[in-house]
Design a protein around this nucleic acid. Structure first.
Lengths: 367, 367
DNA sequence: AGACTCCCTGGAAACGTTTACAAGTCAGGG
DNA sequence: CCCTGACTTGTAAACGTTTCCAGGGAGTCT
């Protein structure tokens, strides 16, 4: 009779009611103690004891409903297997963690529908904000972002009038840096291994390549251009196709995965890198340093872009009414063994410094 | 006057109240229409219209509080930069997506405190369940898992009496496969590049290496063992150290990242692979196939383990009272160019088949 | 001694959904 | 004409927190 009824949750787990009843205090007092605000020593003791006895674990969902925030931030990328996103993620993680939040990553597989459904579902409040790096961009994306109740920051190109926070780099200019470098070091027939032209980065790189050649008064030889996926296997296959029909003395690749694939194709055919063919990748990921010889690569500042994106997101979370903002990160070129001039090195550099050492870098002015 | 007051949420966003008021129906009716259950044609029309006009987006947190589920599943891994986790993640994602849920990934950075805090925070109900692959395992981990209100599945070794669902592989036996292979192909002085011994995988591999040598009646030469991180740079450094003081004719590496680092070190010192030194990695990730020459690698079935873990998790979510279960995945060895017998290949294989083709595999019986 | 402050407490109202229940409408069959 | 059943609707109670508010006790200053 006398014993007060505890009130566990539906599935039998203790709630704040259970704890309060057991400690003989109100739920308000129990909640305060559990959050460490207020409470007399005696109350604190009793509530703590009760919580421990029943194994109380707060329900974060309920708390979020009340506080209107979850402390979670999401990152959606197309391909978690691409090291460029890993670098970006690490940078974002650092900023997000410093703000006391946690980062969750979702891989969309480049699937447009999945990406949008993610925007729809996550943005429905499970997270306090999200960073998206879509490689294909549809009107549905834009609409989902605009309608989203939580802040969204896009890493990558975006229509100029899109009212969405945005961090971008000039990958066209980045391609230009690589072309300039190859021509300057005596290469004449630059092959180009690109990703799909219907993607945002693929289109930008294509435009950049053509513009850069035009700058130097060179007419584009379509035989020297191959298109595949932004993947290792595709890069290897594309390089094999290109080598079968043309004799490039340099290969410029739309990302490092493609470049490593191309390296494999070249070595398989007994072509020496860089003596016979120079090789340049893009994104300057750890993969570029893992390859042998180490790959020259156009850095698009993925870590910087991630960091800036995270900062923009946190600022917007704090102040939702800011006007849409846009940040730029300048590309630069890291020159390594794979693109040394033909006569420069008798054999691919045998770097004695530990991996990660700073390569030669050609910065580009900020836009 | 007359105009009924709408009831937007605290931050001004429309709620179901707003929609209901605008459509002139009760919130119950509005909710039913929005969920597609019941409602007369006229009501449906009015509610739909109202929702569209005000741009209604349901609040998933509130819905979850009511329904006691979020439709989200989390995966926590130490190092998202390690391709082995990418493979695992892809497999998990497939299973999870098929169940209509979404997968979120969290990288803990191998940080024990962070991992536990994640368990604490996420498992407090933000997700319906989680898969964890801790590389260090403390009592706090175990306690956090046991106390967790949502199901947890562990990928990796676990104390036998831990009441937690678990998918494991026999990495000790996996190391044995590699040692057997190297000895069988005429190698005599096998160097071993391991990860930290205070990690679960590091300890298992160390034990496996010693046991395998003992099996063949070989005494361990500590000069042939190096320990570093499970990373590329550490592998490269460890290989350099080892090569400076010993003359191995084979290197067995605790994962593929270390192996690629070792490959770099070997090639930098003009050692030919596999003629001078055979190289074998572990995890059989895509990295093994990207390297040139392609790396032999012990497959620990990461994709299979991921798939099984996801299945176990979904089963437990459906039926929380199942007894703890344990699944095993057998290791196997993928032999590629990097460990061909010294005389077998004049130069590292130039595979004409596309990457991803099936390598020679030595299956091992299921435990 | 009275007024004032400070701290602690419990009741109750949020947060935005879903849903059990009861009440209402309407058509058709007896 | 009434009863039954199918269908729709609205009221209200959950879900588990946090927090506003008012009340009360103890102490301090005048």
């Amino acid at each position: 009779m006398g014993r007060k009824r505890l009130q566990p949750s539906a599935d039998g787990r203790p709630t704040v009611h259970t704890v309060a009843a057991r400690a003989g205090v109100s739920i308000a007092s129990a909640s305060r103690v559990l959050n460490g605000v207020g409470g007399s020593p005696e109350t604190v003791r009793r509530v703590r004891a009760a919580a421990a006895e029943v194994g109380y674990v707060p329900n974060a969902i309920a708390r979020s409903l009340q506080s209107q925030r979850t402390g979670l931030v999401a990152l959606a990328v197309a391909d978690i297997g691409n090291p460029v996103y890993v670098a970006m993620m690490r940078a974002i993680e650092a900023v997000v963690a410093a703000s006391g939040r946690q980062l969750l990553v979702h891989a969309t597989g480049g699937d447009v529908a999945g990406e949008i459904s993610l925007l729809r579902r996550l943005a429905h409040r499970y997270v306090d904000g999200m960073i998206v790096s879509p490689i294909r961009l549809t009107d549905h994306h834009l609409e989902a972002m605009v309608v989203s109740p939580v802040p969204v920051v896009v890493v990558g190109q975006l229509p100029d009038d899109a009212p969405v926070d945005n961090v971008r780099t000039d990958s066209r200019a980045g391609v230009g840096l690589a072309v300039d470098h190859l021509l300057a070091t005596g290469r004449q027939r630059i092959g180009f291994l690109n990703g799909p032209l219907d993607t945002v980065p693929g289109a930008a790189r294509d435009a950049g390549f053509r513009a850069a050649l035009a700058n130097h008064g060179i007419t584009v030889d379509e035989n020297l251009i191959e298109v595949g996926d932004f993947q290792y296997a595709a890069g290897r296959a594309a390089a094999a196709r290109l080598l079968a029909r043309a004799e490039p003395d340099a290969l410029l690749c739309a990302n490092d995965l493609i470049a490593v694939g191309a390296l494999h194709a070249l070595l398989s055919e007994d072509r020496r890198v860089p003596q016979d063919v120079a090789l340049v990748g893009m994104d300057d990921t750890e993969l570029a340093q893992m390859a042998f010889p180490q790959l020259s690569s156009v850095s698009l500042g993925s870590a910087d872009r991630g960091r800036r994106a995270a900062e923009l997101l946190l600022e917007r979370i704090a102040e939702p009414d800011l006007p849409p903002r846009r940040a730029h990160v300048a590309p630069s070129l890291a020159v390594r063994a794979s693109s040394l001039p033909p006569g420069a090195a008798p054999r691919p550099a045998a770097p004695s410094q530990p991996a990660g050492a700073e390569p030669v870098t050609t910065p580009m002015e900020v836009i």
